[in-house]
Design a protein around this nucleic acid. Structure first.
Lengths: 211, 211
DNA sequence: CGATTAACTAGACCAACGATCCGGTTCCAG
DNA sequence: CTGGAACCGGATCGTTGGTCTAGTTAATCG
């Protein structure tokens, strides 16, 4: 009785605290080391407790991924539509690259509120440019897929750094790959690719091309 | 002695058999159900035996993924460069979609012999169009990333089929998304996006634009 | 005020996993 | 004949995601 600690303040473990700590843990140690036990330990509680707030571990990952999307600011309307698209897509890329683990868990539906908000913003920016119908859909589709693929490939390449040497050794068999696959300026390549898409959807065939 | 089975023929477990069986198992049951034990069982052996041929489970996945790339035929030279690029990229997409599990393990270096062969072929097709230097690199970069992102997004969407209904319920908050996110003609959207990229790298600024 | 209920916490436990240890067997080169 | 490399598997280790059961706190309602 008298040895009892002087009334611990209630932890008030909340979904928000769990997600924030999960993101921190993922940032520091990567996706492979995120376990319910370790996460609970960092939160000063037991692993079982987490399952009151969350149904499975996948829920934690879903929430963490959406939290990453929540970091990127929504673009303000107005201005050149191309600039707005660059803003949205570039914001996604920056946020995902800031948390490299997120690129490795992109194989799940992006249905969190933040992800949906930003996807809607992308559609809005494209619709403001005059796109509509299947052409609008194709534009959003290709932009979103391009940025996802870019982030995954960059994170993968940077995470396994010996790829350059590996390619150099096989320059005889893969000459073009060895010449251009190294010395990566990721940002420039990304900007160029985005430029291809934007001018392509301006000049491409079909109806409803933006100005 | 007398109870001994009449001389089982040597299993001759080889890397090829392991990879083939792994692909079959992945096709039938998905990536989550690929375990070394189950794979060994299907091969009529013990799980330990696999570790003689393979260092870790990741090796199996690496090999299986490269086997998928091995399915797509290399394009023959000649003809319109745009058609050849469509052939390469479309081949990747078809093979990856034929094995949906492959899209979820794309977050690893694509350094298998088949993957490298096809990447080199992509560079060759673009170089034949007159591209070179950073512009060639940006073209290959954007095409590869576009197709990877497309496959991942499509597989993800098709694997969790209730997304459409989910969006319909939230049509008030995400009007554009609800209107265009459903009724997906994936092939058409992909072809359109690929068209954007191809015309973009023809008409885009800079030097060395192909004809 | 007392009782019920929802929110919250934890220890013990389960089946399954990747991986390893150790011991055994087959086969071929020297 | 022999030694070593290739090949095989039972038992086992430590860890994981998840559940069962049981306990405690805080707010609500009659």
């Amino acid at each position: 009785m008298w040895l009892r600690p002087p009334r611990e303040p209630r932890q008030t473990l909340s979904l928000g605290r769990i997600v924030a700590e999960a993101v921190a843990l993922l940032d520091e140690e990567g996706v492979a080391r995120l376990t319910m036990r370790r996460l609970a330990e960092r939160l000063g509680t037991g692993s079982t407790t987490l399952y009151w707030h969350v149904k499975t571990k996948d829920d934690v990952l879903d929430l963490a991924l959406d939290a990453v999307f929540g970091e990127v600011p929504l673009p303000d309307a107005g201005g050149d539509w191309r600039e707005r698209v660059r803003e949205v897509i570039g914001g996604w890329r920056a946020a995902l690259l800031r948390h490299p683990w997120s690129a490795t868990i992109l194989d799940r539906p992006l249905m969190g509120p933040h992800a949906l908000d930003h996807t809607e913003a992308l559609y809005a920016a494209l619709a403001a440019a005059g796109l509509e119908g299947p052409r609008l859909k194709a534009a959003a589709y290709s932009l979103a897929n391009f940025v996802m693929g870019s982030v995954i490939m960059q994170v993968t390449a940077e995470g396994h750094g010996d790829a350059a040497a590996f390619l150099r050794e096989r320059a005889a068999r893969y000459p073009l790959l060895a010449r251009h696959g190294l010395d990566c300026d990721w940002d420039a390549a990304f900007a160029d690719g985005l430029g291809f898409l934007l001018t392509g959807m301006r000049d491409g065939g079909g109806t409803g091309a933006p100005t």
